[in-house]
């Protein structure tokens, strides 16, 4: 059996993180860590180097943009899906500049997440 895809889930809404992780586990994704702000995200990334990071945008203190910026400093190929409820025009440009691999709007279709995971697996095999 193939090695499961590894992931980090970062969101300031703890309830959301737990539910999302439960879903990921069900589609055979190994969740290595859970964080609730941008700083934790960077620390966890440095520690685990997962296949994918699901990263919330708006979080207190250190937001998703801070996290994405610093994760890319650690590894320019860091694979990140930005998960966000609202993208305002002020953040839109900054996000586009950092070029995350996916932008997922909340509430998302769970199938869409499954598709992203499937794509990573295809890449890993190739």
């Amino acid at each position: 059996m193939a090695k499961p895809t590894t992931a980090l889930v970062i969101d300031d809404d703890i309830y959301n993180v737990d539910l999302f992780c439960e879903y990921l586990e069900m589609i055979n994704v190994k969740v290595l860590g859970r964080g609730h702000n941008g700083r934790e995200a960077v620390e966890l990334y440095e520690q685990y180097k997962p296949d994918i990071v699901f990263l919330d945008l708006l979080m207190p203190d250190y937001d998703g943009i801070y996290a994405l910026e610093n994760m890319r400093k650690i590894d320019p190929n860091a694979y990140v899906a930005m998960v966000t409820a609202v993208v305002d025009s002020a953040n839109k440009e900054r996000i586009e500049k950092l070029n995350p691999n996916h932008i997922v709007s909340k509430p998302f279709e769970p199938e869409f997440i499954a598709e992203i995971i499937a794509n990573i697996k295809v890449k890993a095999v190739a």
């Binding site: 809404d13 959301n16 439960e22 708006l58 409820a85 909340k106 509430p107 769970p110």
Partner: peptide, 12 residues
């Protein structure tokens, strides 16, 4: 933002 987070949870 505050409404979509719980909606996201409901969806999951």
């Amino acid at each position: 933002h505050d409404l979509k987070n719980p909606l996201s949870a409901l969806k999951v």
